[in-house]
Design a protein around this nucleic acid. Structure first.
Lengths: 155, 155
DNA sequence: AACTTATCGCAACCCATTTGCAGTAAGTCA
DNA sequence: TGACTTACTGCAAATGGGTTGCGATAAGTT
């Protein structure tokens, strides 16, 4: 709460609402609401970009220092099964997780590591081209494309 | 040699030539030619598609049963530094290696695991599109795209 | 308050790959 | 040919991301 004062009140409330709604959904399906889960969700919702499990754990520890990595992995798995989060591999390192708001693919800059979103329409178009030439259609991309961002190319 | 009789004599000779030429290049740069290396190259050249290290080791063992995985990893790394092989990740499992003949990207079928080649031209076109929309250009893809092949889609 | 069982923390494990090290042998040179 | 240097090898152990088994804890229910 207090850590949230940099953000506008409305946004903070919306975030809390979203968290509570998610926890409600978990309870509805027979799951249990714990401090650990609330803390993990808070980090995910406050910082919904692409977070590695280690980052996530570190940020959860700001509030709840004893949460174990395993707990995070298991809860992320639960959220994934609920369709709320997905993970992407952006290279050889650990996977990164994000809220599953919209369907998209990722491109990561080889040089600086920044991750950008490739929207569904463009991927759809590529899928059509691939279907014509190879018979393959594209499915949800679990691995990011590698590229080079404008800044790193010109810098 | 004998294992090669299914293939035309000319091809077998060409393969042997390519292997000896590679070994020569290794010697030229101060490297050493060993039975292990010759056997590994033979497998790579005879079956230059996308082989995992485990497959590679298994096939090397047909000739030389005591070659260690570590040796294979290390020699592949050497060949990679010479620009002769690359590896791609086709999913969560082990990487697959192939001779670095032509530049290309890979798409792997989610269902049956078959790997197809996406040619440079198509990738180049995508890169141009990405550059226009996000400022990113595509570089060599270390991870395969995920898709579904025609057979698995209709079957 | 008693009870059921989902979740937790921990330790141990799995898999692909890497590293340290002592022994072997490839290439070189007398 | 034999001595010599050092690249390469095999093995064991480590690394890193992630998963699993299990007894203890605590959320939700009666």
């Amino acid at each position: 709460m207090i850590a949230n004062t940099g953000v506008s009140y409305g946004v903070a409330v919306a975030t809390s609402d979203a968290i509570e709604r998610t926890l409600g959904a978990i309870r509805d399906q027979g799951g249990r609401v714990t401090d650990q889960r609330r803390a993990i969700l808070r980090v995910l919702f406050e910082r919904s970009d692409h977070v590695s499990v280690d980052d996530l754990v570190a940020r959860v520890h700001d509030r709840l220092p004893d949460v174990h990595v395993t707990t995070v992995y298991r809860f992320l798995e639960t959220l994934a099964q609920m369709g709320l989060v997905t993970h992407v591999h952006v290279g050889h390192g650990p996977a990164v997780y994000h809220l599953n708001d919209r369907r998209h693919a990722h491109i990561v800059c080889n040089a600086c590591g920044i991750i950008e979103i490739i929207d569904e329409a463009m991927m759809g178009q590529w899928s059509v081209e691939l279907e014509r030439s190879l018979g393959f259609s594209l499915v949800d991309q679990h691995f990011a494309l590698a590229g080079r961002c404008g800044r790193c190319r010109t810098g």
